[in-house]
Design a protein around this nucleic acid. Structure first.
Length: 362
DNA sequence: GAAACGTGGCA
DNA sequence: TTGCCAAGTTT
């Protein structure tokens, strides 16, 4: 078999045979043995897992997937939930626009589609938070549609199979065409999951295990270059440093002053302690006059947090407030219930800096 | 097309 | 320690 003949007729059986023997067992997956016993994929489970898995590791998703199904077993339950409760449950997983869109999408499916997900790519793509990848994945995995699934794993596998020199993301259209050719009419969902499993376990970003790969006899990268150097990518830009201050106020009853962030933008819709803007300014000390109210603010160190496109250094201030200050915009939350709030990781870091035991188990 | 958008793990 | 990377979408 030569590379030029690696079409669906040859690639799919090779890969599906590998998948039948080496697939990963995942909480949201109907594996081949389960399918043999008559199990079918639940579109709600497939959708929920796919959204959680966007730019997020399998390991991180597992606990959240279980929690969401426990809290909201059906899409109608999620549609009926309070958005604030969804944000709380999502806290820590990152990319919070996904949680807002998840809730919106559940409402659309429950109210406009009678609780059933659209069963084709075009319909799925119109849902909030469902883009090219997720629409194709749900169509193939949940509805057995002949959809070509292209994610980061598949891009890596394809770029190596064909030794594609065009850097990402410019190479995506070509990659999509190639995946379409390889995707079989039979078991398209398993083919997609197999490509992703292969990319995650064998055709890994670093030190791929080429000797174990079902495509080892068909991989152009393996013959012409170091497979690890694919896919080609444009160089990354440097992350700027931004500075800011966070103010942790504690009252006599051990409650912390919190407020809600705007619904859009960074950490949109999440909860925070009051703080300054995060600016690129590097001119030294933050003024405690920036605090949410007059108090004996006391510096208690800094925390660093790395976001996708900048690094943040927060100066943390603490004050013990005798009587609850006027707080039209926020509220006082007991320390004991802080861990159940919609606090992003950076805010948990800031609060922990001011109150080391804040998130410790009781 | 480029930039915004989180977090944690690993080498 | 620093950088890379993970089942992308939206604006």
């Amino acid at each position: 078999m030569t590379l030029d003949t690696l079409k669906a007729a040859d690639a799919a059986p090779l890969l599906l045979d590998w998948y039948d023997r080496h697939h990963r067992d995942l909480p949201w997956r109907v594996s081949p043995p389960m399918a043999a016993r008559g199990a079918v994929a639940d579109p709600y489970h497939v959708w929920l897992s796919e959204v959680m898995l966007q730019q997020t590791t399998v390991q991180a998703v597992k606990a959240y997937f279980d929690k969401f199904l426990r809290l909201w077993p059906r899409v109608e339950d999620l549609a009926a939930a309070e958005t604030e409760e969804v944000m709380k449950a999502w806290a820590g997983l990152g990319y919070y626009a996904r949680a807002r869109n998840l809730k919106k999408c559940a409402e659309v499916v429950a109210r406009e589609h009678g609780g059933r997900f659209p069963d084709r790519e075009e319909g799925l793509k119109s849902l909030p938070g469902v883009g090219d990848y997720t629409a194709a994945a749900i169509a193939a995995i949940a509805f057995n549609r002949h959809s070509a699934v292209l994610d980061g794993n598949v891009e890596r596998v394809i770029s190596r199979l064909y030794a594609i020199e065009t850097p990402l993301p410019a190479a995506k259209p070509e990659m999509r065409r190639l995946v379409s050719e390889l995707t079989p009419l039979d078991r398209p969902g398993d083919f997609a999951q197999a490509m992703m499993d292969l990319g995650a376990t064998i055709c890994a970003p670093k030190r791929p295990a080429c000797a174990l790969c079902p495509f080892r006899g068909n991989c152009r990268a393996l013959t012409v270059a170091d497979p690890e150097t694919f896919p080609r990518k444009a160089a990354r830009k440097e992350k700027p440093l931004r500075l800011g201050a966070a103010f942790v106020a504690i009252d006599r009853s051990d409650a912390v002053y919190l407020r809600k962030r705007a619904d859009s933008g960074l950490l949109g819709g999440m909860t925070e302690v009051p703080g300054t803007d995060w600016t690129a300014r590097r001119d030294g000390e933050t003024s405690i006059e920036a605090g949410p109210f007059a108090a004996a603010w006391e510096a208690c160190g800094t925390v660093t947090h790395v976001f996708t496109h900048f690094e943040l250094r927060l100066s943390v201030y603490r004050a013990e407030v005798g009587d609850m200050a006027a707080c039209a915009e926020g509220w006082w939350e007991p320390i004991a219930s802080l861990k159940a709030q919609a606090l992003p990781t950076v805010m948990k870091k800031a609060i922990t800096q001011a109150i080391p035991h804040a998130f410790k188990a009781v």
